[in-house]
């Protein structure tokens, strides 16, 4: 009997809890260094992005008003699911050029990062909320709230740990997002969709696109219904464009330049704070 023919996977986009192909019908070729695998990755379009923003906006109210405990449990659930899929991700990481050892380390750190932020989901509010001692008979308090819909251009180099390190603080804080996977290492980023999909993350909370950064970045940063844009990378021209486009609707532009995502200092509640708004409420005290 001949050797069994393997089943190749068609990598698709993840929009509104579904796995569509790009509406553009276009693709870009992706191969590993040894040319053992050739993939037709979806070349996501502006229209795909806009659809994803609509899904993210629709999901925002529900996701941001979930209890923090519930969000924490869902993040923990993602960690559980990922633990069960270690081998899949190790395989993809190796295909993307890592050694087995490095791949193992990366998936371990990635799982731990989900667990880390699962714990933050119901605590950052306590760390950063305040009751303010105003000089009038008023009760005055400040709490963080989600900024809204966040467009993310994920790190090009670190497509699993980096991707997740940027993504988790956004959703832990109650935001919804559209995230563009690494163009050169898209496999494990888009595979994350399968994990999210089976972890009770509601449709639209995370939307993942693959495609060409040069083509999509302009649309990511200029969309008028996006509240915040996270850019990971060092390209100064791109940073300038992102920041210029952010001015169109006063987007919060967050730039992660030269971040070493494997370091312990690349996690923490201040990453959550990047996509939070502080709301202050006043109420009179009296009878």
């Amino acid at each position: 009997m001949s050797k069994r023919l393997g089943i190749r996977k068609t990598y698709k986009l993840y929009i509104n809890g579904k796995f569509p192909r790009t509406e553009s019908g276009r693709y870009y070729k992706w191969t590993d260094e040894k040319k053992t695998a050739i993939m037709n990755m979806c070349r996501g379009s502006r229209k795909d992005f806009r659809n994803a923003v609509v899904a993210a906006r629709k999901a925002f109210e529900g996701w941001s008003s979930r209890t923090a405990y519930n969000r924490g449990q869902i993040l923990y659930r993602i960690g559980e699911m990922l633990e069960g899929h270690r081998d899949q991700f190790i395989g993809e990481l190796i295909l993307q050029g890592l050694t087995k050892r490095a791949a193992e380390k990366e998936i371990t750190q990635t799982i731990d990062r989900f667990i880390y932020y699962a714990g933050w989901a119901d605590k950052y509010q306590q760390v950063f909320s305040r009751v303010n001692p105003v000089s009038m008979p008023y009760f005055n308090f400040t709490v963080p709230e989600a900024t809204g819909v966040v467009a993310v251009c994920a790190p090009e180099e670190s497509s699993l740990l980096g991707f997740v390190s940027v993504l988790v603080p956004v959703i832990a804080g109650g935001n919804t997002c559209v995230i563009l996977a690494s163009q050169s290492r898209p496999l494990c980023s888009i595979s994350c969709a399968e994990i999210l999909h089976s972890s009770d993350v509601p449709a639209g909370v995370v939307n993942i696109l693959t495609g060409l950064r040069t083509e999509l970045l302009e649309h990511f940063s200029s969309h008028m219904d996006v509240n915040s844009m996270i850019y990971c990378g060092e390209n100064l021209q791109e940073i300038k464009m992102v920041e210029e486009n952010a001015a169109l609707n006063v987007k919060r532009a967050v730039i992660y330049k030269n971040e070493a995502w494997s370091k312990k200092t690349s996690q923490g509640p201040y990453y959550i704070l990047e996509t939070q708004e502080m709301k202050t409420t006043w109420h009179p005290v009296g009878v």
């Binding site: 303010n132 001692p133 105003v134 000089s135 009038m136 008023y138 005055n140 400040t142 900024t147 809204g148 509240n227 609707n249 006063v250 919060r252 708004e277 502080m278 709301k279 202050t280 409420t281 006043w282 109420h283 009179p284």
Partner: peptide
């Protein structure tokens, strides 16, 4: 919005953060 006045309006204090969501600022 960044500042909500409940049963009052236009109160300010140095200890009370002030600023906007969306196009009202950063």
């Amino acid at each position: 919005a960044g500042v909500i006045w409940a049963n009052t309006f236009n109160k300010f204090d140095p200890g009370s953060p002030f600023g906007g969501y969306k196009e009202s600022g950063i």
